[in-house]
Structures are given as C-alpha cells and as structure tokens.
C-alpha cells in the first residue's frame, strides 16, 4: 500500500498514540487534558479524511463540478468539536477547584493526600 495514499491515517494513528501516552504517562492534570485534546483532534482528522475524495469540491450544485466530497463528516465534526471544547472547559474548571482544594495539580500528590 502506498504510504502517501494513507498519509492522513498514519497521522491519525500517531497523534492518537501521542495523546493516549500523555494521558497515561503525565502526572500533571492540565497535561492530561492536553493529551485528551490531542487524542480527540486525531479523531476529527480521521472523520474529515474519510469524507474527502481526490478532486472533489464542496457540494454546490452547478454545471462545472460533478465530483463532490461528502459534507456530512464535516458537520459531525463541528458537533464533536463543540463536545470536545465543553469537555476541556469542564475539565479545566475541575482542575482549578482541585488546585484550590489540594494546592497542587499533580496526580500522585493528590492521591497521597486523599489516602
């Protein structure tokens, strides 16, 4: 399989793994949220890549263009982006309250305080 033809999907997989790795490996809660964001972004790219056809244009009805890319994944991803932003906002709000309550945003230190 030619590499350039599946370039987008390779990027998706690499970004997804980077995101997951950050979530698992980093102790800083803000960094965990950044990891989640990278992870979600990779899914957005996956969806957008699926909708694209080489040479396809925006789905506008006229005589010149007959080959269209599917607009539906874009619409879905707009929704998913909104969901992602809400998650990040809520996550950051919780991190701020965690910082006020525990005086740190480090996963291990908070766990020690709880126990």
């Amino acid at each position: 399989m030619d590499f350039l033809g599946t370039f987008n999907y390779w990027v998706v997989v690499i970004l997804m793994m980077i995101g997951l790795y950050i979530v698992i490996a980093h102790q800083n809660l803000v960094k965990k949220l950044i990891g989640i964001n990278i992870f979600q972004t990779s899914i957005f790219i996956l969806f957008i890549s699926m909708g694209k056809i080489t040479g396809g244009t925006a789905p506008i009805l006229n005589e010149v263009n007959t080959l269209y890319s599917s607009p539906l994944p874009h619409v879905l991803i707009l929704t998913a982006i909104v969901v992602g932003i809400s998650t990040t906002a809520l996550g950051l709000a919780i991190v701020i309250r965690l910082y006020h309550a525990f005086g740190t945003v480090d996963d291990d230190e908070i766990q020690q305080e709880i126990e």
Partner: peptide, 11 residues
C-alpha cells in the same frame, strides 16, 4: 475528594 473522582471519571 469528589473533585478528584470527577476528574478521573472525566478522563
């Protein structure tokens, strides 16, 4: 502690 539980659940 509920904050930490919520964050964990969020991730």
């Amino acid at each position: 502690r509920c904050l930490y539980a919520a964050f964990k659940y969020l991730i």
